[in-house]
Measured scan of single mutants.
Amino acid sequence: LRQRHVACLARSERGLGFSIAGGKGSTPYRAGDAGIFVSRIAEGGAAHRAGTLQVGDRVLSINGVDVTEARHDHAVSLLTAASPTIALLLEREAGGP
């Protein structure tokens, strides 16, 4: 079961505080899956403080732009754009009992 949710992050002077992996033109985060995933969350960064991202979340869109088939460098450029806030649509595998 997959759950979707939106995370809104305000960029700090240190950026957004998370890294992505995967996407076309880069090493897959999961074998056989060209999706883009949250690969790291920086301690004390914007994403960590927001508490809405988890490592392993699939990134579906960035500020309304679909990145499900995107190249890695395109997703990075969307994240590093000048916008002071970033809205992410994420998909998470629902774990637990």
Rank of each mutant, 00 (worst) to 15 (best):
D66P: 06
A70T: 10
G22R: 01
R30Y: 09
E93T: 10
H48M: 15
H5I: 15
K24R: 10
G96F: 11
I62P: 01
H48P: 08
D66W: 05
L60P: 01
G96I: 12
E91K: 01
A87M: 15
T52H: 07
A50T: 09
G17D: 07
F18N: 00
I20Q: 02
A46R: 06
L89K: 10
F37I: 03
H74K: 11
A21V: 13
Q54M: 12
S39R: 04
G15Q: 06
A10D: 10
H48A: 13
G64E: 07
V55D: 02
G51P: 04
L79Y: 00
S12R: 09
L1C: 08
H48N: 09
L88I: 13
I41T: 03
K24Y: 11
L53N: 03
H48E: 15
A87Q: 15
D33Y: 08
G15Y: 04
D57M: 00
P84F: 05
G32Y: 07
N63F: 02
L53M: 15
R14L: 09
G25E: 10
E91F: 01
G95A: 14
A7N: 02
H5R: 12
L89E: 15
S77C: 10
S83H: 10
A94C: 14
S12I: 07
V6A: 09
S77D: 11
R92W: 00
G25Y: 06
S83T: 12
L1T: 12
E91I: 03
A82C: 11
T80R: 13
I86R: 00
A47Y: 06
P97N: 13
G45K: 05
T68W: 00
V59P: 00
R58C: 04
G35F: 03
A46F: 07
E69V: 07
G15P: 08
R92M: 00
S26D: 11
G35Y: 06
H5Y: 12
P28Q: 09
D33A: 13
D57I: 05
P84E: 14
L9G: 01
T68F: 04
I62G: 00
G96Y: 12
A46K: 07
P28V: 06
H74S: 10
A7K: 04
E13S: 13
I86E: 02
A75E: 04
R92N: 03
L60F: 02
T27I: 10
S12N: 15
R71F: 11
H72C: 10
G35E: 00
S19A: 15
S26E: 10
I20S: 00
